[in-house]
């Protein structure tokens, strides 16, 4: 029972981690916190769902289409919503991303309706025996894809030129600009990548949770994950997500009713009180 809950929590944690990764990418590069990340996740999942169930395309092709469309959506959001706001106070940016979230959610509701759908995302749920425990194959898939995605992102950010220029832009925008890096293009790409990561998270979430226009609210729970990992740290986001996922799932069986829903937020407030820079964050001081 304990191990089972840990594994369930691990899978859920990977998804929180992936959504948190989306926040972190955008935050690192642009210092914006995207409150609409969960809704991007919902749109991504619905796009794949539409391709598979209505257009009858094979799953992998649908995934590809969803990723490409989401990449464009991310770029569109950056171009038409956030770029005109560069230089505005952070509060305006936060409200803009909240507005994006609201718009995407109502758009999702208008296009796909307010019903709950079942979509197994090409993954069949069979129990897999490892030693003496039975593990759902869905959970194994989620973990495997998360690990794969992290490896891909790691190589992208450390080995490719585009990735390194993104890293540069996130460390010092002005210096990067002077070195001939197109900061606008970098921001646009970051939004694209972040939206794609959100889509992957959404598609991976569908075998565990039903597909619904409101599912973006799950994405809000990625905030504790990102904060726990230290906002701005890519491994931190995943580790934070996994810790949140496991502790939430254990809280569901060992603590009284109601704790499961808010346990992530309790952790968040504790982290912010004890160690606001998180596990992997660097304590930043602002120069005056």
């Amino acid at each position: 029972m304990f191990i089972q809950q840990v594994i369930n929590g691990l899978a859920m944690g990977c998804i929180y981690g992936l959504v948190a990764l989306g926040f972190v990418l955008i935050y690192k590069a642009t210092e914006i916190i995207n409150f609409g990340q969960g809704d991007l996740m919902m749109i991504g999942a619905f796009l794949a769902f539409t391709c598979v169930n209505f257009l009858h395309l094979p799953f992998l092709l649908s995934l590809l289409i969803a990723l490409v469309l989401m990449g464009f959506l991310g770029k569109i959001i950056d171009r038409f919503v956030l770029r005109p706001l560069v230089g505005e106070p952070a509060f305006a940016m936060v409200m803009a991303t909240i507005a994006i979230g609201i718009l995407l959610r109502s758009l999702g509701g208008m296009i796909w309706g307010y019903d709950t759908y079942k979509f197994s995302a090409g993954i069949t749920d069979v129990p897999v025996r490892i030693g003496s425990w039975a593990v759902s194959s869905v959970n194994l898939w989620i973990m495997a894809i998360t690990v794969l995605l992290i490896i891909v992102l790691y190589f992208f950010f450390n080995k490719t030129k585009a990735g390194v220029s993104m890293e540069a832009a996130s460390q010092n925008q002005l210096a990067a600009y002077l070195m001939g890096i197109g900061v606008k293009k970098v921001f646009s790409n970051i939004w694209g990548i972040s939206a794609m990561v959100a889509a992957v998270a959404g598609i991976l979430l569908t075998p565990i949770q039903f597909l619904n226009y409101n599912m973006g609210f799950i994405g809000l729970k990625a905030f504790p994950a990102a904060v726990l990992g230290g906002f701005g740290s890519i491994p931190g986001a995943i580790v934070g997500g996994i810790i949140i996922g496991i502790s939430e799932s254990l809280a569901g069986i060992y603590l009284p009713r109601g704790f499961k829903e808010v346990f992530a937020w309790v952790i968040l407030i504790l982290v912010l009180m004890i160690r606001p820079e998180g596990l992997f964050g660097i304590h930043q001081k602002k120069r005056v």
Binding site: V81, E88, A99, I100, I102, L103, R105, S106, L107, M110
Partner: peptide, 15 residues
């Protein structure tokens, strides 16, 4: 979802 959409749009336009 019309109300939510108008809401989001108004917010964006004001910002």
């Amino acid at each position: 979802g019309l109300q939510a959409a108008v809401y989001g749009l108004v917010l964006l336009l004001f910002i």
